[in-house]
Design a binder for these strands. Structure first.
Lengths: 148, 148
DNA sequence: ATAATATAATAGTCAAAGATAGTCAAAGCT
DNA sequence: AGCTTTGACTATCTTTGACTATTATATTAT
């Protein structure tokens, strides 16, 4: 087991029970007695979106590296939802999906609100009642495809 | 968390329930044990118009820094657009408004993309061609109302 | 009394120093 | 051959302080 693997273990262990963790690059490097850039190496090879992680950081005083988990990679997850959606959707089903997308951080509160309103009964009031759920599903799918 | 973040929190907390607050730069600096210009730094990086704040100040005896929230102008602006929109909208007109809303930072790129796709010809393909522009206008108006 | 001037009390600007993190390519391992 | 380790260089954000600008108030001159 090499150092990068050890650091990977350490971080995975730290994030196991959490949704995210915040690291100080320099502190971590000191702990493992390596150069700071090795932390970047570990992160860029092992905490990538494809493996279910999302990384943010900030430089300067009080800087940090924040690693968040995303259970599935975003695009896989979206493709999955798109497949699951049938040709019709009621407003309440839309809202269920929106909450899920919110939970996985694929959209934020504001996006969810916009989509929910756009697909509400009120917005689609002029569409034939018979076609409404189909139009709603179409719009929703198109939005999701665009988010991939 | 660095000092600037702490000061930001403090100010945001103070303005949370108010339309505006007035600070004494030197007093605040003393409270946080920093140089006065750090207050300027915090204000100029975190209380900018793009983030919904408007700052005025006055020097000399009895000087102050007044920070106001500008949610009001935003809602006025939205109401104005809603009034201007007729009962029909083409896709290209939607995009023109989206760019405007983007310019005023009422929505961000991602929101704009979502709305644009939701109201595209493709998404609304199943709606009667005759009714499509009306449905589009309805959805758009509902979204805007929701953003107020 | 009024106008002009000085003084004190604020706030603003800007650039340097400090504190982090990022990049990239060379060297080292397996 | 490909992954890991290292370090020099870069980018970004924060903190500090010297210098400047503005406003209110006090003092002085007319």
């Amino acid at each position: 087991m090499n150092l990068s693997d050890v650091i990977e273990e350490y971080i995975k262990d730290a994030i196991r029970e959490e949704q995210y963790i915040e690291l100080k690059r320099s502190e971590l490097a000191q702990e493992f007695n390596c150069v700071p850039s090795q932390i970047n190496y570990v992160i860029s090879t092992r905490f990538i979106p494809e493996l279910g992680f999302y990384v943010e950081s900030r430089r300067g005083g009080g800087g940090y590296i924040k690693i968040s988990r995303i259970s599935h990679s975003k695009s896989d997850y979206l493709k999955n939802i798109i497949c699951k959606i049938g040709s019709k959707m009621s407003q309440s089903v839309v809202d269920i999906y929106l909450r899920e997308l919110l939970g996985y951080n694929i959209i934020d509160e504001k996006d969810a609100a916009i989509i929910s309103v756009a697909l509400s009964e009120k917005s689609l009031g002029q569409v034939d009642k018979l076609k409404r759920d189909q139009v709603r599903a179409d719009i929703f799918k198109n939005i999701l495809v665009n988010l991939i």
